[in-house]
């Protein structure tokens, strides 16, 4: 597992700033092909930012993000676009284009790069939408969907081209438990049956316990833990322990004092 070829993504020494405020400091890890890699951490610790750097949406201050060996962190736009076509990204709020119907949204990447005729595109759209439980919603506009439905439609669009890697920002946040469990099952199945690598940002404990192979924990922009689910459950790192025990602390007070 540890050979470089098995690592589909390698992030090394990533440092990023938002304006002058540091967001991530010296984050390094690697994701193996075919695993479900979960990034956890409290609100505002830089999870979503990390995801945006891994997908080339933001350029880091320093450090590198390698996809199959090529560094995308400081890549030329056209080259980057080529790499991005091989990724699926499902956004927190879906990121659907409001001017197109749900079906058109899913069809867009297929029309752009799918190399498929119209009949096949329609068939794929129907398949992907029914995979996420939205089989009948193809003709609706994104504005007519609930938040959870939009999120699932976003996932359908992300898997439209059957990418080898899918990034998913907060899949189960804001979903009812039944739907969240369904989405977890879907992730597990896609990973198992199609070998898709998932990189998921979440803080839903139930979901993590169901899907995660390995876990990276961020705290205030630093990686404080990297290991398997079992290791995480048994970890002695205070923040990790707290996270998995779902325990509050005097942390609020500490943060307050630090802010001064």
């Amino acid at each position: 597992m540890d050979t470089a070829a098995e690592h589909i993504i390698e992030v090394s020494n990533l440092v990023t700033h938002y304006g002058e405020t540091p967001v991530l400091s010296d984050v390094s890890f690697a994701v193996a092909r075919g695993e479900v890699f979960v990034i956890i951490g409290g609100s505002g610790c830089g999870k979503t930012t990390l995801l945006k750097h891994m997908t080339g949406l933001l350029e880091p201050t320093s450090g590198s993000v390698k996809h199959c060996g090529t560094d995308i962190a400081h890549m030329d736009e056209d080259e980057l676009a080529k790499v991005q076509r091989t990724l699926g990204i499902a956004f927190q709020s879906g990121g659907l284009f409001n001017s197109m119907s749900v079906g058109e949204n899913v069809a867009l990447p297929l029309r752009e790069y799918g190399n498929a005729d119209e009949d096949l595109i329609q068939a794929i759209v129907r398949l992907k939408l029914s995979l996420v439980g939205l089989g009948a919603a193809g003709d609706l506009m994104p504005g007519e969907l609930s938040g959870g439905m939009r999120k699932r439609a976003g996932l359908a669009r992300a898997i439209a081209l059957d990418p080898p890697v899918i990034y998913f920002d907060e899949p189960s946040a804001g979903l009812d438990p039944i739907m969240a469990a369904g989405l977890d099952d879907l992730i597990v199945n896609l990973n198992r049956l199609l070998g898709i690598t998932f990189i998921i940002v979440t803080h839903e404990l139930d979901s993590i316990r169901t899907i995660a192979h390995r876990i990276l924990m961020l705290d205030q922009g630093r990686a404080v833990f990297l290991g398997t689910l079992d290791e995480a459950e048994r970890s002695t790192v205070p923040r990790v322990k707290q996270f998995f025990d779902r325990r509050a602390d005097e942390y609020m007070a500490q943060r307050g004092a630090k802010a001064g």
Partner: peptide, 18 residues
């Protein structure tokens, strides 16, 4: 602006579209 705020621009770029 609305597309930027609602992550649509990110989605577009994330698909490798200019």
């Amino acid at each position: 602006a609305t597309m930027t705020v609602q992550e649509e621009i990110d989605a577009l770029r994330g698909m490798g579209l200019n």
